[in-house]
């Protein structure tokens, strides 16, 4: 090989090497972490101006989300319960499973469009996205860990201490920094590119069945599952009878008001195809069962008036509504590379 050839080879090799290192580096660009409010969505409730988005903080949030270091025995990460392919709900688990295979009392909800919520949890007990993770972290049946201990573990970990230093230019690792970076990661989980969204924007078409489903949905369901978020953020009793083995009174536990007993947050229905089983206790595995429930007339006394208005849905109507609900699956969100596990390439 002549001298010129060697130089060309060396240059190509180093370009290859640099791009390889960058891949390993897992870093994000400014563009990756830009907040884009989807067309037609309202102003978010969570205010990123108090927690300015940055590639470094988002990356830290992602690393923490996928890391069992947040649990006492390094067995459980956020992802153990919130899986990407299920819009960050727990695939096929009625009730949450935590540390030592302990079983929780509620179904794991999806994490999507969180910044438009005003409260978190099925009972709305948490008032800010940033502090939501304190619940699983400190719960004896979920991650069973303490904040001071997590801070010690992160300080002792070379990867984390380097990452915190890169972001903050100092050596402080505290709960505020941990929680704010997790909120950057979960807060940017935005689903707004389903077939429904494309249909609305005139970029996709619906079958007759899907169109019928949408009309029925607007008439029967959207008073609570309000577009475009498919929730009005209220607490309602949708008529499912309380499970006496769990005796979960929902919102009533937070407000101590008897009139709030058995009310739960109206969940979003985006990506509903992937987030089964359904309801706060995961009692229904299939959408068919959900539709059977809404169509039955024997609801209890405290059932919301809007539910009683739904009335009997015939077989075709139920199928149409389900066909419509399936258009809410957002493949782009479910496969978004920004939210993948940094350890699994």
């Amino acid at each position: 090989m002549n001298k010129k050839g060697t130089i060309v080879l060396l240059i190509t090799l180093s370009i290859f090497l640099i791009s390889f290192i960058r891949k390993l580096d897992n870093s994000f660009s400014k563009k990756d972490v830009e907040l884009k409010i989807p067309k037609g969505f309202p102003k978010p409730n969570y205010d990123f101006s108090e927690n300015p988005l940055s590639p470094g903080k988002f990356e830290l949030g992602r690393k923490l989300f996928y890391d069992p270091i947040l649990s006492k025995d390094s067995s459980t990460s956020c992802e153990s319960c919130h899986q990407r392919v299920a819009a960050f709900a727990h695939i096929d688990h009625a009730l949450s499973h935590g540390i030592d295979s302990k079983i929780g009392t509620r179904n794991v909800p999806a994490i999507q469009n969180m910044i438009w919520r005003d409260t978190y949890m099925w009972d709305g007990g948490v008032n800010n996205l940033e502090i939501q993770p304190l619940n699983p972290i400190t719960s004896p049946i979920e991650m069973n860990e303490t904040l001071p201990n997590i801070i010690l573990k992160l300080k002792a970990n070379k990867g984390y201490s380097a990452l915190f230093k890169k972001i903050y230019k100092d050596t402080v690792i505290n709960s505020e920094r941990i929680l704010k970076s997790l909120a950057q990661f979960t807060g940017l989980m935005i689903s707004a590119n389903s077939r429904y969204d494309k249909y609305k924007a005139g970029k996709d078409t619906f079958s007759i069945q899907e169109k019928n489903g949408l009309v029925l949905f607007k008439a029967k369901c959207s008073s609570c599952h309000k577009e475009p978020l498919f929730t009005d953020n209220s607490y309602r009793n949708n008529g499912i009878l309380p499970d006496t083995s769990l005796n979960d009174i929902g919102r009533g536990k937070i407000t101590n008001l008897e009139t709030d007993n058995y009310k739960f947050k109206v969940p979003s229905l985006r990506n509903i195809e992937m987030t089964f089983p359904y309801m706060h206790d995961g009692r229904y595995k299939k959408l068919k069962e959900v539709l059977n429930h809404y169509s039955s007339s024997n609801h209890n006394a405290t059932t919301d008036a809007e539910i009683k208005k739904i009335g009997e849905l015939n077989d075709r109507e139920r199928k149409d509504i389900i066909a419509f609900l399936l258009t809410l699956t957002d493949k782009e969100f479910l496969s978004d590379k920004r939210f993948t596990d940094p350890n699994r390439k």
Binding site: N51, L129, I131, L134, I151, I178, K180
Partner: peptide
């Protein structure tokens, strides 16, 4: 309602 805070208001 302010979310994660530090100092006296740190949840630790």
């Amino acid at each position: 309602c302010k979310g994660a805070q530090s100092g006296a208001l740190d949840p630790v």
